[in-house]
C-alpha cells in the first residue's frame, strides 16, 4: 500500500507555525512512518486564506488548521471562532466548552453539512491590542486601523476602531507602510514571536477577547480514506498541539510582560472597561437573534460563564 500524503495549510505564518503546529506535525510524520505524511504549508502559501475553506472542501488542500472566522467558513458557527468577546478567559476554557459543554457536537454537525470533517478544537489565544501609538483610554481606539478578526472588527467598530483584514504575513510590513496602526489579534507571546513587537511598541494589557479558538479540519473524503489507527494518531497529535499552545502562551505571556523590552504596557481605566463588557453582552444578544444554532451557542457561553462566576476563585476573580 502506498503512502498517504496530505497537504495541510495553517492560518499561521512561518514564525508562529514553528510553535503552534510544526512540532505536532513532525511528531505525526515520525510515528506514521511509511504509512502517511503530512506536508505543512503556512499562511497563504498554496491558496490565499480567503479561498482556504473552498480549497479544503474541494480537496485541493486536504487539511486545515484555522479558526472558523478567518477562513470564512460558510457555517452557523463562523462568528464564534475567531473572536467572540469575553466568551472565555483562560486557555482551559476552550477544551472544557468543547468537551464538556457540547460545542464539539454542534461544530461536528455544522461542518458535516458542508463536506468537512471537524477533527478537533482546543487551542486558545488571548486577544490584546498591540499598537504603534499607546492606548490609555477607550477614546484612543478611535480611528485606529487595526488588523483583527472579522467578528472582532464588527464588535470593535462601535468604539471607532477601523478593522482591516490582510494576509497574515503582510501585517508586519503593513504597519511599516502605514496601512495599519496596530493589531488586535494575539497575546504578547505571538507579538514577539512573529515580529509585530518591532513596529508595534505598545501592548494593551486588557484583553478585549479571550475566545480565539483554533481547530483542525479535513476534507471529508480524505478523512474517510485514512485508516482508523491513523485517524486516532491524528487526533492525538492535534491534541498535543493544543497542549503545546497552552503552556507556550501561558508561560510566554507572563515572562514577556515582566522581561520583554520591545513593548511598553498600558491599560485603560476600569470604568472604560465596564463599557466594553456591557457592549459585549449586547453584541451576544444580537448574534443570538440571527439563528437558532447561534442562540444555542450563546446560551452555552452564558451558562459556562455563570458556572465559572459561581465557582469563584481561581476560576473567576470578578468583583461580584
Amino acid at each position: 500500500q502506498s503512502k498517504i500524503r496530505w497537504r495541510m495549510q495553517t492560518y499561521a505564518g512561518v514564525a508562529l507555525a514553528d510553535h503552534v503546529i510544526r512540532p505536532a506535525i513532525e511528531s505525526f510524520n515520525k510515528i506514521a512512518g511509511d504509512e502517511m505524511e503530512i506536508e505543512l504549508y503556512t499562511a497563504d502559501q498554496l491558496v490565499p486564506t480567503g479561498e482556504l475553506f473552498r480549497a479544503m472542501q474541494q480537496g485541493t488542500i486536504d487539511a486545515v488548521q484555522s479558526d472558523d472566522d478567518s477562513m470564512a467558513s460558510p457555517t452557523e458557527v463562523t462568528v464564534f471562532g475567531g473572536y467572540f468577546p469575553f466568551a472565555s478567559r483562560y486557555s482551559l476554557d476552550v477544551p472544557v466548552l468543547f468537551n464538556q459543554y457540547g460545542l464539539n457536537e454542534i461544530w461536528g454537525a455544522e461542518y458535516e453539512k458542508v463536506g468537512v470533517k471537524h477533527i478537533s478544537a482546543g487551542s486558545w489565544d488571548p486577544c490584546n491590542f498591540a499598537t504603534i501609538s499607546p492606548i490609555k483610554s477607550l477614546d484612543d481606539l478611535k480611528g485606529k486601523r487595526v488588523f483583527t478578526f472579522p467578528t472582532a472588527g464588527r464588535f470593535l467598530a462601535q468604539f471607532g476602531v477601523v478593522p482591516v483584514t490582510l494576509p497574515y504575513e503582510d501585517v508586519e510590513v503593513a504597519m511599516q507602510t502605514g496601512e495599519l496602526d496596530g493589531v488586535a489579534w494575539s497575546g504578547i507571546t505571538e507579538d514577539y514571536t512573529v515580529g509585530w513587537a518591532g513596529p508595534a511598541k505598545y501592548f494593551l494589557t486588557n484583553n478585549i477577547s479571550g475566545a480565539w479558538i483554533g481547530h483542525f479540519f479535513a476534507n471529508m473524503d480524505r478523512w474517510n480514506e485514512v485508516p482508523e489507527r491513523l485517524q486516532e494518531l491524528l487526533r492525538v497529535c492535534m491534541d498535543q498541539s493544543h497542549y503545546y499552545r497552552q503552556w507556550w502562551y501561558w508561560g510566554g505571556e507572563a515572562r514577556l510582560r515582566v522581561e520583554g523590552t520591545k513593548m511598553e504596557l498600558t491599560s485603560i481605566p476600569d470604568e472604560d472597561w465596564d463599557k466594553v463588557e456591557t457592549a459585549a453582552r449586547t453584541f451576544w444578544d444580537e448574534i443570538a437573534q440571527e439563528s437558532e444554532t447561534k442562540a444555542k451557542i450563546v446560551s452555552i457561553f452564558r451558562k459556562y460563564n455563570e458556572d465559572m462566576q459561581k465557582a469563584g476563585r481561581p476560576y473567576r476573580y470578578s468583583k461580584a
Binding site: D44, L46, V47, P48, G50, E51, R54, A55, Q58, G59, T60, I61, L166, P167, D170, A174, T177, E179
Partner: peptide
C-alpha cells in the same frame, strides 16, 4: 500532478494577487 482539486489553483493565484495590496 496535483491530484484532486488541482484545477482551481490558477484562479486562486489571481485571488492572491488581488489581496497583494502593494
Amino acid at each position: 500532478l496535483w491530484g484532486t482539486g488541482g484545477s482551481v489553483i490558477p484562479f486562486s493565484a489571481s485571488m492572491k494577487l488581488m489581496k497583494w495590496y502593494p
